[in-house]
Simulated assay, not measured.
Amino acid sequence: MAPFSYQPPTRGDKTDKHTYSQTADSALSHDQSTVAKLLEKKGDAVFSIRPGDTIAHAVQALRDKRIGALLVTDQNGTMQGILSERDIVRRMAETPGQTLPQLVSDLMTREVKTCAPSDYLIDVAKVMNEGRFRHMPVMEDGHLCGVITIGDVVNYRLQELEYEALRMKQMIVG
Rank of each mutant, 00 (worst) to 15 (best):
M136C: 03
D141I: 10
R63M: 14
V72K: 00
I122E: 14
S33P: 03
Y20W: 15
T99D: 02
D25M: 15
P51W: 03
T78D: 10
P8C: 11
S48W: 05
L158R: 07
G174D: 07
I49N: 00
L158T: 06
D16Q: 14
G43T: 03
Q7Y: 08
K65V: 11
A36M: 08
L103I: 08
S29D: 12
E130W: 13
R110V: 08
K42L: 06
T10K: 12
P8V: 13
V72M: 00
S21P: 09
A69T: 01
K42D: 03
A69R: 00
T78Q: 12
R110F: 06
L144R: 00
R110I: 06
M92T: 07
M171L: 15
E111Y: 10
A24T: 12
G52A: 14
M139H: 04
P9C: 08
G174V: 06
T54E: 04
A2K: 11
E162F: 09
K17M: 12
Q102W: 09
A93K: 10
T54H: 06
R86C: 09
S21A: 13
F4W: 14
R167P: 05
E40C: 11
V104L: 03
A61G: 11
Y6I: 13
M128Y: 04
A165N: 10
L39N: 02
P8D: 14
I122G: 11
G146I: 02
S105K: 04
M139R: 02
A165Q: 08
V104H: 00
S48R: 04
P117A: 09
E94Q: 12
G12V: 07
H135Y: 03
N76Q: 09
A93S: 11
H30M: 10
V127E: 06
G142K: 00
F47A: 12
R63Y: 15
L144C: 05
V35P: 00
D13S: 11
R11W: 15
I150F: 13
L70A: 02
G77Q: 00
A69G: 04
P101M: 04
D106W: 11
E164P: 01
M108G: 01
A24H: 13
L38S: 01
D31A: 15
T15G: 07
L83F: 02
Q60L: 12
A69E: 01
A58S: 05
V124T: 02
I67V: 05
G174Q: 05
M171W: 15
D53R: 05
R11F: 15
M92G: 06
I55T: 01
L161N: 08
G142H: 01
R11K: 15
G12Q: 07
P117F: 10
E130T: 13
S29Y: 14
K65N: 14
V112I: 03
D123F: 07
E85Q: 11
V127M: 06
D13I: 09
G146N: 01
P96T: 05
R157K: 15
T149F: 09
G131P: 03
S84D: 04
D31H: 15
Q7I: 08
R91P: 03
L38Q: 00
P117E: 05
V173H: 11
G97F: 08
E94K: 08
E111W: 09
V124G: 01
H135C: 03
R132F: 12
I49Q: 00
E160N: 03
H18L: 15
T15H: 11
R91W: 08
E162M: 10
R157N: 12
K126A: 13
G146K: 00
R86M: 07
